[in-house]
Design a protein around this nucleic acid. Sequence first.
DNA 1: TATTGTTATACTCTATAACTATA
DNA 2: TATAGTTATAGAGTATAACAATA
Lengths: 177, 177
Amino acid sequence: MKPVPAPKPSSVAAAPAIDEVDAGFLESLIGYNARRAALAVIEVFLQRMVVYELRPVDFSVLSLTGHNPGITSRQLCTTLGILPPNLVGIINTMARRELVTRRPHPHDGRAVGLHLTAKGFKLMREAERTAAALEVEVTSSLSTAESKALITLLKKVYQTRQDEAARTPRRASANQR
Amino acid sequence: MKPVPAPKPSSVAAAPAIDEVDAGFLESLIGYNARRAALAVIEVFLQRMVVYELRPVDFSVLSLTGHNPGITSRQLCTTLGILPPNLVGIINTMARRELVTRRPHPHDGRAVGLHLTAKGFKLMREAERTAAALEVEVTSSLSTAESKALITLLKKVYQTRQDEAARTPRRASANQR
DNA sequence: TATTGTTATACTCTATAACTATA
DNA sequence: TATAGTTATAGAGTATAACAATA
């Protein structure tokens, strides 16, 4: 983006140098732009959540469990698009930190209901407040209407994908993301 | 957010089961929605690019090199937000596949200019066509105006983040996400 | 027979340190 | 001294297979 000295009118255009990268094609793709935006926001998220020792997944599990007392591992996996083996460690760590407890499921002996402790709820409230503040910051270049529109459009994209995947059963219900 | 059967007026609310997960809070966050949308689109992208043996990074490198002949590794890294050590293997593989060649940089003996071979250009054109087709598909639930708006809004989010990071030099220019 | 939760493990992606050649 | 490219390696994140307990 800086002013560049005019290219030497020299002869051999054999292997010219690039001074301004043209990423035009990539920037026309939803996937590319959505990934860049997600990474940019998550970068800030990571910084702000360090004090709570919460990674994005941890935050998601905390928030979902707080708003859905008794939720099962399976439900967390389906909602967040993560695999059961990878959730075990997350829950274990949170249990060791005394943020969540496992209680027997009311009518399924295989399943376990997850619940936040008082400490867990306190952390959830603080972390959600921080996330909400961060949200305002990250959307500072957008109007309120634009922020709402952005979220609506993003949901349309992934919910449509999700529905189509459900309508095209690969075997049963495709598990991930 | 779907209608939920009225809670049984039963007695012990000890450990109720969750039948519909409320992800309301998470769904209010740009980062969460952008990540979900990116993953949904990339999933389709992965499937369609299998025939070309191109992962998203490979595609990006191929496209950028095709549109910017003579681009350096450093420029690719900066543009795509990947680290130099992780790019080496990508370029090596693409060179082994005879898609790119390394040529001396016109006026910097340390740098190497990257160029597509004829085979590389052919693959780039095919892959870009596929990506463009996929784009139409993935935005089927959006109007043309909505698709354009979505991309504009996403760019606003990450370009603002990017600019602020540049204005707050942590040491020099913070390289990575 | 199918599903929940779990262990063990492999694979991919991303990050850090250190080296060389050139500027 | 700083930068471009590279090597080796460490660490996260994500994936598959297989098992016990329950449905």
